[in-house]
């Protein structure tokens, strides 16, 4: 019996272990090994930290890196600010069918691929696009307005892409908030603001944190949106990694960049958890 359960356990665990080792652990070990070697001659490599040194010596790399981090944090905040009232409405105010319909409406954009969705934004924002024409027609602009290829366009794209990943955990946690607790908050003299601050937000913190982690990771690692909506001045760190691997065949530097991005995201997530006093265990449930 015991041997049987043990075998079952191993069999059940196998796909997970394969997934982890083949797709995550082994590639990362290899990436790390690639990142700490330096090409001294054709097919001649030496172990060194030269790639990491290059990153810190070249201002473009460092600045793109920081810019990506700051923009991703900003995108996460904006997503949270927009998603919170939406989620509150879906979870607490909407009832029955409306609730389900609203939730599905949040989901529908994800039926089409990210590429198509991003093209949708390009159609709206480009010089000859819908918004530009609308502004001209309304007399608010006297010539075509270019709204693409800047940071604002990237931000819109990122927030739009991430919205669902914030709404789902928020709706789930807010739904578990007992209506009577909110009513008690009012009954004991609270107004909308104090009920939100002392009752709703503390209750929703696990959802806010887990949603924020997911959105932040997605934004930081996003390649498509910054590439398509951003301009020459709006470089994203993933674009740098891509160009090192694919354009310049410099796998060593690319691997080093990849590793730095991993470190950065881990660091910010850790900081976020510390700041909100949550643990990964509580957040991921």
């Amino acid at each position: 019996m015991r041997a049987g359960t043990k075998l079952g356990f191993i069999l059940l665990l196998t796909p997970l272990l394969l997934w982890l080792s083949l797709l995550i652990i082994i590639p990362h070990i290899d990436m790390f090994l690639v990142s700490i070697r330096e090409r001294v001659d054709v097919r001649q490599y030496e172990t060194s930290l030269a790639n990491y040194l290059t990153f810190f010596q070249e201002p473009l790399y460092l600045r793109t890196f920081l810019r990506t981090a700051v923009m991703s944090v900003l995108a996460t905040l904006i997503t949270l600010l927009i998603a919170f009232p939406v989620s509150y409405y879906i979870a607490k105010i909407a009832k029955g069918r409306l609730q389900a319909v609203l939730f599905v409406l949040c989901l529908i954009p994800f039926y089409v691929s990210e590429l198509v969705r991003t093209f949708g934004w390009m159609i709206l924002l480009r010089e000859t696009g819908v918004f530009s024409n609308l502004l001209q027609w309304a007399g608010l602009a006297d010539r075509p307005v270019e709204m693409l290829y800047n940071d604002a366009a990237i931000m819109i794209g990122l927030v739009y892409t991430s919205m669902l990943f914030m709404v789902v955990p928020l709706v789930t946690t807010l739904e578990s908030l007992d209506d009577a607790v909110v009513e008690a908050g009012y009954d004991l003299g609270g107004n909308g603001y104090s009920v939100l601050r002392e009752i709703v937000i503390p209750h929703a913190t696990p959802g806010i944190v887990s949603g924020s982690i997911v959105v932040f990771m997605l934004s930081l690692g996003n390649y498509l949106t910054p590439t398509m909506l951003g301009g020459k001045d709006s470089l994203w760190f993933t674009e740098l990694i891509y160009s090192q691997f694919i354009v310049r065949f410099n796998w060593e530097l690319g691997a080093a960049f990849g590793f730095l991005l991993l470190l950065l995201s881990s660091l910010i997530v850790w900081g976020m958890l510390r700041l909100t006093g949550q643990t990964l265990k509580e957040t991921m449930g």
């Binding site: 009577a180 607790v181 008690a184 009954d187 004991l188 003299g189 107004n191 002392e198 009752i199």
Partner: peptide, 21 residues
């Protein structure tokens, strides 16, 4: 008078103590 201004307080059926505090 809105509920938060009434000199009436309520003990709820399931008490509704604030679990976050």
């Amino acid at each position: 008078v809105p509920p938060n201004k009434r000199a009436v307080n309520m003990v709820f059926q399931h008490l509704a103590l604030f679990p976050m505090m």
